[in-house]
Computed example of a mutant assay.
Amino acid sequence: MKVCHLTSVHSYNDIRIFIKECNSLVEASHEVYLIAPNTRNKMLHGIHIHGMINPYKGRIKRILNFKEDILSEALKVDADIYHFHDPELIPVGLKLKKQNKKVIYDIHEDVPRQILTKYWIPRPLRKLISYAFEIYENQSVKKLDGLVTATPYIKKRFEKYNTNTIDVNNYPIMNELYVPSSSNCNKNNAVVYIGGISKERGSSSMVKAIGKTESTLILAGNFRDEKEEVELKMLSEWKKVNFLGYLDRKQIKGLLETALAGLVVLEPRTNFIDSLPIKMFEYMATGLPVIASNFPLWKEIIEGNNCGICVDPLNTDEIAAAIRWIKDNPVKAAEMGENGKKAIKEHYNWESESRKLQKFYEDL
């Protein structure tokens, strides 16, 4: 099949879109195209990348105008199946349907709940916009050929509007991060967090907690907000933080192999509680014990597989106590790491998810 993935927001090398989905489809012998913003045309890993320059300054102008440029490029590709990844591209998907194309909507987030937390939307308008968008999204998906969701929770929301809905979870690629055997001899006295850095993702709690331990906190990722970055770096505990900024996939693997534990202490926000953060599974794949928020779904994974400790993400004493326990109990911590790897190998890996995606395409 000739397949075209579309995004107006994500980078061309996005982990879910490019590294996982597009590469898996190439491996299944499909002809794969990817239309993505702010890159040049190129062939990479057998994928035809069509770079689109976004000339529109500001989020609102991009949402209103860039989709027409994406649609024009998509029609030039003339694919059998179009697979789009952003809510703002729903109008593009509907127009492609009018051209008798097969169209898939890949739903990464529960957007109506996410809107309620968007700082750039005036607070009095958030509930109204959230409600209006949910109605629009629910009605639109009925007209599409299929939906791919990033979590079972999102799937449950949508399958009553479109029965051809599957969840394809963001689990790690086994041969990328999985470490067959672990050793504690090269471990540094440091815990690590990878990904976007913001207060809602636990940045303040992690920094304050590390000040109550003898360990160091390593932050690998970019700040989401300049003001929050300034405020965080003014904390007295910041002196115990090693901020590395963005790392590529190879650097992340090397970092995780030498840490004591991985942190994913996101605040109890509506859009986080039923999410499946990829960083949690990447920690497990490299044999790191996980210190995670005590959300019911996460407790089921972490405590159910005995691969880490769940804590109140707003309680810095609990986070600090978990870090100290990992440091003071290296044998039991290593057992947790091995349990996490076992769970990844048996259940939470991309290889099994990619087979679901390939069958979905074939059925369509």
Rank of each mutant, 00 (worst) to 15 (best):
G195T: 04
A285C: 02
T316I: 15
V207N: 06
Y348L: 10
D167C: 11
N100M: 05
N169C: 15
L247D: 04
V230N: 12
V331P: 00
N186H: 13
W325S: 02
D78E: 13
N100Y: 12
A261S: 09
K95W: 03
A292Q: 10
I309L: 13
E137C: 03
E300R: 14
I173G: 03
P124W: 02
S182C: 14
G340R: 07
G196D: 06
E159H: 10
V9L: 14
K160H: 12
L297K: 13
K101W: 06
L144D: 02
L96Y: 05
K341T: 01
E346P: 07
L297E: 14
K342I: 07
P172N: 03
A79W: 08
H85I: 05
Y131Q: 12
E318R: 08
E134W: 04
E318T: 07
Q358H: 11
T117N: 14
G46N: 09
F133L: 07
K42E: 15
S204A: 10
K101S: 09
A220V: 06
N186D: 14
Y136L: 02
G340W: 10
R157N: 08
G93D: 08
D167R: 01
L6M: 11
V111A: 04
M1V: 11
G202E: 10
V103K: 06
K212A: 00
R123F: 15
K102G: 01
I166F: 04
S204R: 15
E231W: 01
K341D: 05
D248R: 02
S275V: 01
N271C: 06
R113Q: 14
E88Y: 09
P268H: 12
L6N: 04
L244S: 04
A132P: 00
T165G: 02
I291D: 04
T258K: 15
E159N: 11
L266A: 12
L34W: 03
K356M: 04
D167Y: 12
V191L: 04
P289K: 04
H50Q: 11
E68V: 01
M174C: 09
K118W: 11
R123T: 13
R126L: 06
R355V: 11
